[in-house]
Design a protein around this nucleic acid. Structure first.
Lengths: 205, 205
DNA sequence: CTAATTTTTGTCCATGCGTTCAGAAAACGG
DNA sequence: CCGTTTTCTGAACGCATGGACAAAAATTAG
């Protein structure tokens, strides 16, 4: 019997191969775009035969889903770590923004690939992934905004609209970064935080 | 000699056919998604033979570009009309937001199709359309924000970040509307305007 | 009415795709 | 060492796509 890994029932080589294929898929999608990221190209990038992908993954569908969950989980953990050291709700709101931008800054390729897949990939019924994913991120921001409002750090405003604006503002940063590769993400993050804090600050509406 | 139309040198029937094909493309892309909107499907939707599209358009590329420019020009005109009747910069900022949402509300299919194409379609070099389009919309909002700031209607903030946040917030409304078909766009617009006005209002920061 | 031109049609083609498969190669267990 | 299992390969498959083409149909002009 081969040594197994956790509860997945996968051998070490299996896990390594899957990781290698996932990384190759990320690189290929980021470089050539979702539509041009065929299994053949991914296999070439990984330096393996096309059929190996079909051997280790149930299909292209499963591979792409694994890419998305891997990257988003990584980013979620990074943001969670940034949130842990915060003391005020204002800090938490800022950390949500800067934390995600820092992940984007340090893992551009991975984030780009995951975004491409989420936007472009459709399941068999034609529904894109971004309409299937849960809204945990939005709910998290809503929670911070409500708590901050109750604590008196923020003013009175529509927390859901505010949360959506933050999330879509973060999504849009990638677009701006693609338009201008020299964009300073840290600077952008600071300015975005400042703008959002202007909106949520207490005071007349 | 056939009667011609403007400077394009196209006959009336030619113009009509092109419009019919463009509308069929819009309907097909909105219904089946960009990736599944083949020329065959578009032709079936239009009730014509596939080759007619190739006869009237240089290729799929030209057809899709015409769809995008047609829809975005329509929306731009609608927003422009809404702006014309504004007297203050605050009104203009609000009209930019509500005007676009009203177009989205009244032309969901067209906007959806154009967005799909802009996001997913790549030219031969692999560059998506949304990285090619000019930033006239952003520049317009930047102009409003600067003028409003100089007029004392708005406070001191980063106008570019503010404009980008507005634009990306508007882009995101379509996503929310897809997630929840019963979303009240007028209500969303009012709330979004209120939130943005909170951010740009004069005061410390 | 006839000839020329515009428009439409159905068919065919080359290409690329994801997946399948039999068999080769490698790794493993006793 | 040999038999078994896992892993990999290259070829083949069915399918869908965008485009090209000759011929048919419709429209126009004289």
């Amino acid at each position: 019997m081969r040594s197994e890994n956790g509860s997945t029932g996968r051998s070490f080589v299996e896990v390594a191969r899957r990781r290698q294929i996932i990384d190759a898929a990320i690189e290929t999608v980021a470089e050539r775009g979702y539509a041009n990221a065929s299994l053949a190209h991914i296999a070439t990038t990984a330096g393996i035969s096309k059929s190996v992908i079909s051997y280790h993954f149930a299909g292209k569908e499963e591979l792409l889903r694994e890419v998305v969950t891997a990257v988003f989980d990584e980013c979620g953990e990074a943001v969670g770590a940034a949130l842990a050291s915060c003391r005020t709700w204002t800090e938490r709101l800022a950390a949500t923004i800067t934390g995600q931008l820092e992940y984007l800054r340090d893992h551009r390729t991975r984030w780009l690939a995951a975004s491409e897949i989420v936007i472009s990939h459709r399941d068999e019924s034609g529904t894109p992934l971004y309409l299937q994913s849960g809204d945990e991120e939005i709910e998290g921001i809503v929670g911070i905004l409500e708590a901050g409002r109750d604590a008196g750090e923020f003013g009175a405003f529509d927390v859901r609209i505010a949360a959506l604006t933050v999330v879509h503002g973060l999504d849009g940063v990638l677009t701006e970064w693609q338009k201008d590769e020299s964009l300073d993400l840290d600077d952008y993050g600071r300015r975005l935080v400042a703008f959002i804090l202007r909106a949520v600050r207490p005071g007349a509406s």
